[in-house]
Nucleic acid binder design. Sequence first.
DNA 1: TCCTGTGTTGACGTTTACGTCAGGGGCGGG
DNA 2: CCCGCCCCTGACGTAAACGTCAACACAGGA
Lengths: 157, 157
Amino acid sequence: MSDAGEPAAPTGDGGELTISQLAAALEVTPRAIRFYESAGLIQPRRIGTMRVYGHRDRARLLLVLRGKRLGFSLAEIREWLECYALADGQIRQTRLLLERVRSRIRELERQRRDIELTLEELGRIEQEAIRHLGAGTGVRRSGAGAVPAPRCVGGPG
Amino acid sequence: MSDAGEPAAPTGDGGELTISQLAAALEVTPRAIRFYESAGLIQPRRIGTMRVYGHRDRARLLLVLRGKRLGFSLAEIREWLECYALADGQIRQTRLLLERVRSRIRELERQRRDIELTLEELGRIEQEAIRHLGAGTGVRRSGAGAVPAPRCVGGPG
DNA sequence: TCCTGTGTTGACGTTTACGTCAGGGGCGGG
DNA sequence: CCCGCCCCTGACGTAAACGTCAACACAGGA
């Protein structure tokens, strides 16, 4: 206990993490991180054979995880990360970049519409459930926004 | 060509579809539809052995497809469809329903935040790309909303 | 010196969501 | 009566995204 609690902190440290530290921080498994690397999503520095993750790696991994939450495949996420990389660098092949970005924007906008539709419907169901509980039983709103028209439930729009 | 173009339209018809008709209409394969049925997501009427899909089945399938676009597993979609079913009927086990609905609402709201973050970032990248193209080359906006702060690109928030 | 803990690279297992035959039935047309 | 077309039910194949296990290396402590 003289220096620190970390079991194998990389060299001089400086916000750098081992794989299991990063994994714990982002709530994934080391295996998953290695897998993402094998898929070309991240390329951490190495000290000898050991992987060392800096801020940028962590940021990239966060983007990967966000993409996953949005339901994209690792391949799609890779393509999408390349947008950032391209934008980050000298911005070459700008037209290609623009195409990809816009395609992704369209997808996301559709997805957002889907989500909003679903939230509306779930909001209606929630209201109906609350009404059926007779209110006053300790039930409170969950945070969903306005519920426009309390039409019939079950129609997907 | 005396009656209709359908090869095997169910009995008296009335908006009812065969599996391949429904599949074509929603741009999925018959196999996928059968698979969803085996997963308990839809239960079409049968004429003898043949599946016959009505309005409600079509609506349910649309919900399934929306759920898929949002990145949910079929199991999750099933649980989620049950919310609709419960709400549709006599609304029993209302508390359970409410819990599920709210849990799903929370997930969706998180997802929506993710999408909005990503759209912002992509919007910035798009703007930067447009700037780099020098404008006037026939480039127009894609439809993405306002882009608040043109900060550095690459930070995942 | 040996043990423990953490790291590495394969390699195989598993789950999900279908794709792809194989095998068989029913029905209208030529 | 046979053909072609659509339907059905298995059953096996597959791609993605890891989980799990084996075998090995290295570093620090009792």
